[in-house]
Every structure is written in structure tokens, then in C-alpha cells.
């Protein structure tokens, strides 16, 4: 089966619905039409640019260029992870933790998939490497930012309990165990929900896309299953890394809780 290609006219039919939304907003005084049109324009521009860029990158098919694209994506995701929590670690701690964990988790998960299950030739073929890195990054970003937010928000709240343990001679990492565990749990809940609801509540995005593109539903399902495993692996790895790196940034060589390393 060949995918049904969309013409510009087909896309314009969809745009009629956005215009209808805008009319509704005017009619009901929702005052949303400005935001709605800006969002719609951003969507079109951003996705067309990405389409163009990817087309060019796929055509050039240079490993260095593919790596550069992936690195830009990693940088954007790390910035998001760092910016999400209200608290900041001094000396750009949020950024180093975000970048380290996102890069490591994504690289490991994507490389594993590309060199074993997906087996594209060559394994760094941008057709596979870039979308795969993208979808893994999206989930890793979620897990990592939840874990970091939970660690930095929780440490101030749980400080009396943690320091009470330290004062009684409990080693730092043992005193932090409860908080680390809670943060990793919180970071992994979304992916657990996604896996358990997959197919029952919604058809997951990749599967929908591949069915629309003409793939056999069973094949599409297998692809989705593999991806979900990759995503949960990536999120798990990233949130564990984030939690332990944050715990490590909050202590010193005398196993103190250095809450003064948090600013704001």
C-alpha cells in the first residue's frame, strides 16, 4: 500500500476548521482568536521549516550533519529540563544535570535501537536516527524534568527529616533514599500510564501515523511496542541519572546537605 499524499488543497480544507474556530471565538466573545491564529501560523511555519531541513539533511546523508542535528535537539531538550523546576542549583547545576542525563539516556537508548532492533543501513541513516532520537528525547525530557523538579522542590521540604538522619550518623545517600525514590517514581508514572492505556484510550501517535501511511496494523503495533519499550527505558535511565546527579550536587565531601547550593 502506498501512503496517500496530501496536496496543498487538502491541507487548506483542514484550515477551514481553524477559521471556523476563530469565528466561534469572535461570536462567543472567547477572545481566543488572536492566540489561535498565532498558534496556527507558528504550527505551519515551524513544521514546514523542519520538513525542509529534514529533507535537506536526508538528501545530504552526512553522519556529521546528522550528529549536529541530534546535538541541537539534545541542547534544546536539556534547556527545557533545566528551566522547568522553580529552584536553581548554583553554578548552572540545572543545565549540567539536564544536559548530562538527557544526552546519556538518549544516546544509549537510540543507539541500542538503531544497532539492534531497527537495523537500518548504515545504522546512522538520518531517516531513522533523527526521528528516533526526537521521540526518545521528548520522553526523556519529560522524565528528566519531572525528576529534577521533584528533587529540588522536595529537598527543601524534607530537609528537617534528612538532616535529622544525618545528625544521627546516617550516611548521606541513605538519608536521601526516600526523596530519590519518590522523584524517580514520579518521573516514571507518565510512561507507565501511557503503556497501560495504549490502544484502549487512544491509538498511540506512531501507530496512527504508520497505519495512515499504509502499514499493516500488526506491523504498526510491533513498531509501537518497541518504541514504548525504548521510551520507558530512556525515561527510566534519565530520571535515575537526574535524581542521583542532583543528590550529588547537594552534598559535599563531609556528607552534609548543602541546601545553600540552591538559589531562589
Amino acid at each position: 500500500m502506498k501512503p496517500i499524499l496530501l496536496s496543498t488543497g487538502d491541507v487548506l480544507i483542514g484550515a477551514v476548521l481553524i477559521v471556523a474556530d476563530g469565528m466561534l471565538s469572535l461570536l462567543l466573545g472567547l477572545n481566543l482568536h488572536r492566540q489561535l491564529s498565532i498558534a496556527a501560523i507558528r504550527l505551519v511555519v515551524q513544521l514546514l521549516i523542519i520538513g525542509f531541513v529534514l529533507r535537506a539533511v536526508f538528501a545530504i546523508a552526512s553522519p556529521a550533519l546528522t550528529l549536529a542535528v541530534v546535538l541541537v535537539m539534545v541542547a534544546v531538550a536539556s534547556r527545557e529540563v533545566a528551566a522547568r523546576p522553580e529552584q536553581r542549583l548554583r553554578n548552572f547545576g540545572n543545565y549540567t544535570i539536564g544536559a548530562g542525563s538527557v544526552a546519556a539516556a538518549t544516546a544509549l537508548t537510540a543507539l541500542l535501537a538503531l544497532t539492534t532492533a531497527i537495523r537500518s543501513t548504515p545504522w546512522y541513516d538520518p531517516h531513522y536516527a533523527i526521528p528516533l532520537a526526537g521521540i526518545v528525547l521528548g520522553n526523556v525530557l519529560n522524565g528528566a524534568s519531572l525528576a529534577l523538579d521533584s528533587m529540588l522542590g522536595g529537598v527543601a521540604r524534607e530537609r528537617p527529616g534528612i538532616e535529622a538522619q544525618l545528625a544521627l550518623g546516617v550516611p548521606y545517600m541513605k538519608a536521601m533514599k526516600g526523596l530519590i525514590r519518590a522523584s524517580i517514581r514520579r518521573a516514571l508514572l507518565p510512561i507507565v500510564n501511557q503503556m497501560s492505556a495504549a490502544g484502549l484510550v487512544t491509538l498511540p501517535g506512531i501507530m496512527t501515523g504508520q497505519i495512515l501511511a499504509g502499514m499493516d496494523p500488526m506491523e504498526a503495533a510491533k513498531y509501537q511496542i518497541l518504541l514504548m519499550f525504548l521510551l520507558s527505558g530512556g525515561s527510566g535511565l534519565a530520571s535515575v541519572l537526574v535524581a542521583y546527579l542532583a543528590a550529588w550536587r547537594l552534598t559535599d565531601d563531609r556528607q552534609r546537605l548543602r541546601i545553600d547550593r540552591l538559589a531562589g
Partner: peptide
């Protein structure tokens, strides 16, 4: 050290 307002975990 025993704090004035003890922490619990």
C-alpha cells in the same frame, strides 16, 4: 545533634 524542632522521616 538534636535539633530544637526535630525532623522525622
Amino acid at each position: 545533634y538534636c535539633a530544637a524542632e526535630p525532623g522525622w522521616w
